[in-house]
Amino acid sequence: NITNLCPFDEVFNATRFASVYAWNRKRISNCVADYSVLYNFAPFFAFKCYGVSPTKLNDLCFTNVYADSFVIRGNEVSQIAPGQTGNIADYNYKLPDDFTGCVIAWNSNKLDSKVGGNYNYLYRLFRKSNLKPFERDISTEIYQAGNKPCNGVAGFNCYFPLRSYGFRPTYGVGHQPYRVVVLSFELLHAPATVCGPKKST
């Protein structure tokens, strides 16, 4: 009989979020998941679920829940969905086509923008091939755009693969920082350890 609540607040209220190319993952297990707390949290810009209804989450049990978190621009949030393409979905964070879970995003301009620009948040701009679902690539190898080998030196046709967002408070909404948490639900042939409040007695 599990009684402790799942530590969703640790994920959602973290002081610093990860850059999207180096997205953070927390495994959540052996706890009671009260999703209504999240669902009623006012400032969400997006709360979209795939393969599961957000209002039914509290009735369900899962083997594991993974909480992935990172920061992207407002106009990139739409790429955090199954079957998407674009710089983020291709080179930074890719969801599987059969994704079961929820994508939760909110504007973090007050936290993550600075006058003069916040350059701490990076994304991958160049990559030889697209990421596989949930693949994480933190390499900083110089990207070779031409035929000539770069030998690890940036220059003509040789690019550092990461780019900084440089968030400023005055940017338009599409270019403002958004914090994103992706909850993915794993249902294995194993005992369920993460259940909603109704199922955990």
Rank of each mutant, 00 (worst) to 15 (best):
S53Q: 12
S139A: 09
I142G: 08
V20A: 06
S78A: 12
A22G: 07
Y159S: 14
Q84W: 03
K94A: 05
L38D: 03
N64Y: 11
K48Y: 05
F70S: 03
A145R: 11
Y159K: 14
S53E: 15
L187H: 10
L187F: 10
P133G: 07
G174H: 13
G101M: 00
I88A: 03
H189V: 09
V194G: 12
F41D: 07
Y35C: 06
P169L: 04
P197H: 13
G196E: 11
N30V: 01
F12K: 01
A46C: 10
N118I: 04
R124G: 04
V52F: 10
V77P: 02
N24F: 01
P177V: 03
G172K: 14
G166L: 07
V37L: 13
K26M: 09
N4I: 07
Q79W: 00
W106F: 11
C102Y: 00
T193R: 12
V115Y: 11
F44L: 10
I142M: 14
D68F: 01
T170P: 07
V194M: 10
Y121H: 11
D59C: 05
S108N: 04
S113L: 04
N87T: 14
R16M: 09
N13H: 03
S108Q: 03
E186Q: 10
Q84G: 12
V103P: 00
F160M: 14
I2L: 13
H175A: 13
S53M: 09
Q79H: 04
F47A: 07
V20S: 04
Y159T: 15
Y66C: 06
V182T: 00
E135N: 05
C6L: 01
S29F: 08
T85S: 13
W23V: 03
S164V: 07
V153M: 13
D97Y: 07
N24S: 13
N1F: 05
L5T: 12
T170F: 08
V37W: 12
D137T: 02
D34E: 05
N109L: 07
V77C: 03
Y121E: 05
D112C: 00
C61R: 13
G155W: 07
C102V: 01
I104A: 05
S53L: 09
D112E: 04
Q84S: 12
Y35R: 05
A22W: 04
N109Y: 08
P96S: 06
Y165E: 05
N30A: 06
S164G: 12
S29G: 09
N75T: 10
L122Y: 15
R27W: 05
A14C: 05
Y171V: 14
T3R: 07
F185E: 00
P133T: 04
L111T: 13
V181Y: 02
R73C: 07
T201V: 14
L187K: 14
R179K: 02
G74W: 02
G83P: 01
I80Q: 02
P82K: 03
S108V: 04
L162E: 04
Y21N: 04
E186L: 00
G74K: 10
A192L: 12
A145Y: 12
P133K: 04
V181M: 03
N107I: 04
P82C: 00
R163V: 12
Y66G: 01
Y21I: 03
L131W: 01
L122H: 15
Y50N: 01
R163Q: 14
Y21E: 04
A46E: 15
C31D: 07
F185T: 01
D59E: 15
R168Y: 10
A154V: 11
Q84H: 06
Y119Q: 14
S108P: 03
I88N: 02
N147M: 11
V32F: 08
A81E: 06
H175T: 11
N64W: 07
N13F: 00
Y119C: 09
S139Q: 09
K56N: 12
G174Q: 13
